[in-house]
Amino acid sequence: MLNEPFTVTIEVVPPEGPDPAKVLAALESVARLPFFGFSVASNPVAKPRMSAMALCAMIQQRTMKPAILHLTTRDHNRLSLQGELWGARAMGIETVLVATGDFVALKDRGHTTTVRDADIYSLVGMAREAGLHTGVVFDSHPESDGLNRAADHLKRKVDAGAQFAVTQPLYDEAGADEIAGATRDIGIPVIMGILPLRTPRHAEFLHTRVAGIAVPELLRQRMHDAADPVAEGAANAREMLAAARHRFAGACIMPPFDHYEVMFHIL
Rank of each mutant, 00 (worst) to 15 (best):
L2I: 14
E4K: 07
F6M: 11
V13Q: 13
P14D: 04
P15F: 03
E28W: 01
F35A: 02
G37C: 07
M50V: 10
L55G: 02
Q60K: 02
L69C: 06
H70S: 00
R74M: 06
N77D: 15
N77V: 11
E84S: 09
A88V: 03
M91D: 11
M91R: 09
I93E: 12
V98Y: 00
T100F: 04
A105V: 10
K107I: 15
K107Y: 15
H111W: 14
R116Q: 08
G125A: 02
A130Q: 09
G131E: 09
G131S: 13
V136R: 00
F138Y: 07
P142W: 07
E143W: 10
A151K: 03
A151G: 01
H153Y: 01
H153D: 02
L154I: 03
V158K: 04
V158W: 03
D159A: 11
A160V: 05
A162L: 07
A162F: 06
A165G: 10
A165E: 08
A165D: 11
T167F: 06
Y171K: 13
D172F: 14
E173W: 06
G175R: 06
G175M: 13
D177L: 09
I179C: 11
I188D: 00
P189V: 01
P189Q: 01
V190R: 03
I191F: 02
L195F: 04
R201D: 15
H202A: 11
E204D: 04
F205T: 10
T208L: 15
L218D: 14
P229A: 15
E232P: 04
G233W: 12
R238E: 10
R238K: 10
A243R: 04
R247P: 05
A249H: 07
G250N: 08
C252I: 05
M263D: 13
H265S: 09
